[in-house]
């Protein structure tokens, strides 16, 4: 028990390091998410004119029906 205050700083250091690690990971993830969701994927896939222009072949108009 007499050693407890001596090692308290070590405990605090471990908790603080873990906290900073979690925060940095979360920020990294949200950064990637935001960057991605604003990225080229959605700029095109929410733009019907661009999609139509970029569609190399128009395979519309077919008719299909399930077999089961």
């Amino acid at each position: 028990m007499q050693n407890a205050p001596r090692y308290l700083w070590l405990l605090v250091l471990v908790f603080a390091t873990s906290f900073l690690f979690v925060v940095s990971c979360t920020e990294e993830t949200s950064h990637v998410t935001k960057q991605t969701m604003d990225s080229s994927c959605l700029s095109c896939h929410t733009d019907n004119d661009a999609l139509i222009a970029l569609a190399k072949s128009d395979d519309s108009g077919g008719e299909s029906s399930g077999e089961g």
Partner: peptide, 22 residues
């Protein structure tokens, strides 16, 4: 069943994007 045009198959309506992102 009528098939969708190639672009329709992968199109996300801009006003529906926030619903998906939520």
């Amino acid at each position: 069943m009528p098939q969708l045009a190639a672009w329709e198959k992968v199109y996300i309506q801009p006003d529906k994007l926030s619903d998906f992102q939520a």
